[in-house]
Design a protein around this nucleic acid. Structure first.
Lengths: 250, 250
DNA sequence: AATGTCACTTCATCAGATGAAAATCCAACT
DNA sequence: AGTTGGATTTTCATCTGATGAAGTGACATT
């Protein structure tokens, strides 16, 4: 069970780390960010191939390859003779790594913070429950290691966030369900992008330790009901924090 | 809130329903199905562009566009002079509509059935809970309509399955969270593919009605705890059914 | 045996040409 | 006036050829 070292930002599209300079990747990011960011609204058409060639300074093949990638992510639809139009939001692959970063990286909107917090409340307790049902010894060990890292980094805000993400990922991984783990990996991309919302005081970080401890303990003992309840407490606290943060600063 | 009429199968990639004949779409499906199906293993390289041109009977542009789409879905990675290799499974966009159908459409494996059943147990109770917290009047009405359709189709296996999927989708939609709804839409793609597992006797269908009724009622009354419990019962029953089905037929 | 060079493989990218489908426009007809 | 029919144009679809760049691997030299 690998701990998915998925690319943080342009995960899927960046085929070669050394060369995000690939022309089609440029096109994908330029157009993708504009679409998800809202400056290219659903239903409207994007500039025609020839214009994009000029605007983005790449050849037509690069434009076409990029457009096809975005079509594969559900953002675009090409129609012969009618140009290429932005598809409605419901067609987007919202849990694509690129789409998520285009959405959450640029100064997340309060509404998106709410969506993310609600999502965790909806998913994490259930995931912890299944984790308690399915975890094998190795998975439990990984959760314990992640917990130890959490204690070890409680004084450093940045490493603590990473340890926190790793702990929750270990819980999802313990459920032995690749689809579920994928969902969390995508959530963690979004969480990393909005981490300033969760960068609380060191004192506050320490307050969350007992909650995490209870989650780990319940899974270790295969107590699914307790694991679920403990995790619910953790994410409800996170949601309350996020809401308060939004109220204060926005 | 649209009830996501997402394309069932080749959702994202099929830009134009009339023309799945598009060359690049051919390439995407031919290679994508082989990769997800396992006949092109992670780490191995796919045939070089020139060979694919011959093998698939399309031009090089089509091959390149298709390969780029698959790279966008995390399935492939191209390297200059080293060919194009299949990326490890952890890099795949598992919740991409195409990837899901390549995985679940061809005679699903028992392991995949388990993953799917566990996923519902992990997610749906939490989703029902948030739905009870966030549902507005319109959302509640849509759930009630879906419930009525469930009763109305209890005697017809096929329509009942659709009504069942629609009911669960209405619950997710009520949570007012686009990411959560997207997750369910992907789950429903997989569920539709393995529906024979859920095609139970008409009598059995009727037995599930009270459970669904309780879910709807709890959400209607904004009773999140009860909504969660009721939904848990529903999906636990479904999981038990799926397990039994796997034991019997496989 | 180690190393440096060189040819080769393979993808990256651009440019040009042809084709096809659909939208638009305009005129003729009812 | 409204509708229909076709001609025109726009725009993407696709193939082909050429050039470039980045690794790979073999081979010869020391």
């Amino acid at each position: 069970m690998k701990t998915g070292a998925r690319g943080i930002a342009c995960g899927a599209v960046a085929t070669d780390p050394q060369r995000d300079s690939a022309r089609n990747v440029q096109v994908v990011h330029a157009l993708g960010a504009r679409i998800v960011g809202g400056s290219l609204a659903p239903g409207t058409s994007i500039p025609i191939e020839e214009e994009l060639v000029g605007e983005l300074g790449v050849g037509r093949s690069a434009v076409r390859e990029g457009v096809k990638v975005l079509a594969g992510k559900g953002l675009l639809e090409t129609r012969r003779s009618a140009g290429t139009i932005v598809r409605p939001r419901e067609s987007w692959n919202l849990l694509d790594a690129d789409v998520l970063s285009w959405r959450f990286e640029p100064e997340p909107r309060p509404e998106d913070i709410r969506v993310l917090a609600d999502l965790r409340v909806a998913l994490e307790p259930g995931a912890a429950r299944v984790a308690a049902e399915r975890a094998d010894a190795a998975a439990v060990r990984r959760i314990d290691e992640a917990l130890a890292a959490l204690y070890a980094t409680a004084d450093d805000p940045e490493p603590f966030i990473e340890a926190d993400l790793a702990f929750h990922q270990a819980v999802f991984a313990a459920a032995d369900n690749d689809l579920l783990l994928y969902v969390y990996d995508m959530i963690s991309i979004a969480l990393r992008s909005v981490r300033q919302v969760h960068t609380r005081s060191v004192a506050h970080n320490k307050e969350t330790l007992p909650g995490h401890e209870r989650v780990a303990q319940a899974i270790r003992r295969r107590h699914h009901r307790k694991a679920e309840e403990a995790m619910r407490t953790v994410v409800e606290v996170a949601r309350a924090d996020a809401e308060q943060h939004v109220r204060l600063c926005c």
